[in-house]
Amino acid sequence: MPYKTIIFEKKEKVVWLSLNRPRIGNTINLEMANELVDACLAIKEDDEVRVVVVTGTGKVFCSGFDIAELRSVAADNLKQMNPASLSSNAVAGLDCPVIAAINGDALGAGLELALSCDIRICSQNAHFGFPETSYGIIPSGGGTQRLPRIVGRGKAAEMIITAEPIDAAEAYRVGLVSRVVPKQKLREESEKIAGKLISRAPIAVRYAKEAVNKGLDMTLPQGLRLEADLSFLLQTTKDRAEGIQAFLEKRKAQFKGE
């Protein structure tokens, strides 16, 4: 893959996307944001890909976006040229499950990228925060919307308004990450979760993600209808027949994504 700022590795059914500007904290510039957009499009078109892992090379996950670049951008164009929103929306738009393997600090647009993933695990050294208000701006890659939907309003407001970072233990306590592991174990742990996701029925996994994420934007009765309709649609898949057959025969199901 001809990427300059990210590494795109496909290992069987898993794509690893590594932010790769380690000397400048993997900050997201426009080039990196566009490469992430492109990579996510490629992932969507590739039926073999079942899980995506987003991580960073070097010591940090991602310390934010390149604000210097934005100074020359006219306000009208900011929506199309904001690396924070471009990158996080690209990842949030993936319909397969996405794991954030947070190898170090995730700040600003870096945290927003992690919030766009479905499952977040981090190494013990990681810190999380939105420093934006200390620079006179606000999070612009979905942070003000996604953080309260993940950790609740109370903690989100505190983090965003104070701009104070939290450590890995606190992130675990408030539900921002589901697991904290030693740094050298992060890759192995991510592979383990990816392996588990791959063993499940792929269409069901995608529909489950859709039901949870879209359902949270609806009233409960609307969400229940979405869940039911997706479930009736799943009844038409070969994987569902195989899943039940395998359960009744007490063997491991062989899903084909059909």
Binding site: I119, V174, V212, G215, E227, S231, R240, E242
Partner: peptide
């Protein structure tokens, strides 16, 4: 694991009860 999703409301009730993450 059997090619299904929760169908007794779980995909809607659970994220409203616990941390969605």
């Amino acid at each position: 694991g059997i090619g299904m999703i929760p169908t007794a409301g779980g995909s809607q009730t659970m994220p409203r009860l616990v941390w969605p993450g």
